[in-house]
Design a protein around this nucleic acid. Structure first.
Length: 489
RNA sequence: GAGCCAUUAGCUCAGUUGGCAGAGCACCUGACUUUUAAUCAGGGUGUCCCAGGUUCGAGUCCUGGAUGGCUCACCA
């Protein structure tokens, strides 16, 4: 415990009050308290509760003393209600204790519902108990806690004083629940696959490395669940999904947190078309259920999530926004030269598909504000996707963009074990050339495919980014309760 | 990883040309039995992010560092 000498006055005074309570034989850290109601339901249904006796519990958020009477605001998970204590009703001892409550103290109370002459629904106290004495002052009632550093490091304070923050995380919870409802209704089975992988597969990303002592082996925190979920298709499950964390050892930005939540789902005997249908129906119905509309605002921009969404082949998109027609570019070298002419940074080892993707990211991505499926990604950057029959350089794959951001990625799954093995070998070449984000070889996954995996559609949706979109949050940190921060000191 | 910006009381923020460290809320004392950003009277509670430097004198100028934010890079 901190030395009282070192505490500032605000904290010293609170500790003194704590000691006073103990000296009077009152325990300032109480036990179970049975509530009859929540604050908001009383405020919203005054007629029903007028004159009724209620029991509430929550945190004191404001106090207005008037000598022999005192108003305060009590905040519980539902909202805030005014409470009112009078000397006449409480008696001298209890009233004096009520007057000495600090903002931040947690109490349980009993009282009668009434409306003040100014029309505010209020509970007039007949008794109360201190359930937790607060020893630190909360931020200011009017401006709340603004310092983003403190907001993320002390999310408990942020949640206490900034109601919109609480609301964001309530919405996040509802979004995830609606996604589960939606998929469950379609007959998908929710599964859990390993978070610790001997081989980091399913995505192009740098993994976190950890170590298992008893087995004396290094393990990777998963960068994607994909290869495990598809092993389940081999095993005979035909509709599976997982909503869970992925970990990528990469930069942090407003759109990237080292751990983030992904939905991945796989549907046997389906394809990329089915995934498009699921994506637009899932996201629009979640928006409808959670927000009550499919027309949303994100950062002052109107976004219409009403299906069907625009579908745009990548080659067409690139041609439209950059003027480059990759249909008529046949060699990687020609592609690299054309990209250089557009002022793009080209290192010299890029394949045709790499260049196409670079041009796409530079010229097209930021323009895709309304929901857009970009179709037919080049095979070089899609090592787990099925090739198009009529153009084996492209794959049956889409990425969904909203507000210029990648929101989803899906394809018809590659189930040809021989092609898959060759794709992994291509990735290994990239790895050996120094690309530590290229895919690793996963022999067991190849073996699984050799047993036979049904053709399937697979889909990944970044939950954090979806929540950002639906809660109008500018930073991914606003939708992650405890984003990764450097430790202080 | 690079550039720009920020860091002053518990919180939100001022701080002029380099000249005694400020306000509002919160807090403390007193008044007040339907107030509501309650009001009225009084009280300033501080490692000016840290370490150096310049200067008679630094919150302010310079150098280095820490943390955070934004942009870029990275991240399909």
């Amino acid at each position: 415990m901190a030395n009282v000498e070192e505490l500032n006055e605000l904290m010293r005074v609170r500790r003194e009050k704590l000691n006073e309570l103990r000296q009077k034989g009152i325990e300032p850290y109480g036990e179970k308290f049975e509530r009859s109601n929540y604050a908001q339901e009383i405020v919203d249904n005054f007629e029903k509760y007028d004159g009724q006796q209620v029991k509430l519990a929550g945190r004191i958020m404001a106090k207005r003393g008037h000598g022999k009477a005192c108003f305060a605001n009590l905040q519980d998970v539902s909202g805030t209600i005014q409470i009112y204590g009078r000397l006449n009703d409480l008696g001298e001892e209890a009233y004096s204790m009520f007057e000495k409550l600090d903002i931040g103290d947690i109490i349980g109370l009993e009282g009668t519902v009434f409306k003040t002459r100014r029309g505010e629904v209020t509970v007039s106290l007949t008794g109360f108990v201190i359930l937790s004495k607060s020893l630190r002052p909360l931020p200011e009632k009017w401006h709340g806690l603004k310092d983003v550093d403190l907001r993320y490091r002390q999310r408990y304070v942020d949640l206490t004083v900034n109601p919109e923050v609480r609301s964001t995380f309530v919405i996040r919870s509802r979004i995830v629940r609606e996604i589960r409802n939606y998929l469950d209704k379609l007959g998908f089975l929710e599964v859990e696959t390993p978070m610790m992988h001997p081989i980091a597969g399913g995505a192009a990303a740098r993994p976190f490395i950890t170590h298992h002592n008893a087995l004396d082996m290094d393990l990777f925190l998963r960068i994607a669940p994909e290869l495990y979920l598809k092993r389940l298709l081999v095993g005979g499950f035909d509709k599976v999904y997982e909503i869970n964390r992925n970990f990528r050892n990469e930069g942090i930005s407003t759109k990237h947190n080292p751990e983030f939540t992904m939905l991945e789902l796989y549907q046997a005997y389906g394809d990329v078309e089915d995934m498009m249908e699921i994506t637009e129906n899932l996201i629009s119905s979640v928006a409808q259920k959670v927000l009550g509309t499919t027309k949303i605002r994100y950062q002052e921009q109107e976004i219409d999530l009403t299906p069907p969404w625009k579908r745009l082949p990548m080659l067409e998109a690139v041609k439209q926004y950059s003027g480059l027609d990759f249909n008529s570019i046949t060699s990687a070298e020609e592609a690299r030269n054309k990209a250089k002419e557009l002022g793009l940074e080209i290192e010299g080892h890029e394949s045709w598909g790499d260049v196409l993707n670079i041009v796409f990211e530079e010229f097209v991505e930021p323009k895709l504000i309304q929901p857009t499926f970009v179709l037919d990604y080049p095979v070089e950057i899609s090592p787990l996707a099925k090739r198009k029959k009529d153009n084996p350089g492209l794959t049956h794959r889409f990425e969904l963009f909203i507000y210029g951001r990648e929101m989803a990625n899906a394809f018809s799954e590659l189930n040809d074990p021989i092609d898959q093995k060759q794709r992994f070998e291509k990735q290994l070449e990239k790895r050996n050339a120094g690309d530590d984000e290229a895919h690793m070889m996963d022999e067991d996954y190849i073996q699984a495919l050799e047993y036979g995996m049904p053709p399937a559609g697979g889909l990944g949706i970044g939950i954090d980014r979806l929540v950002m979109l639906l809660t109008d949050s500018p930073s991914i940190r606003d939708v992650i309760l405890f984003p990764l921060m450097r430790p202080r000191d």
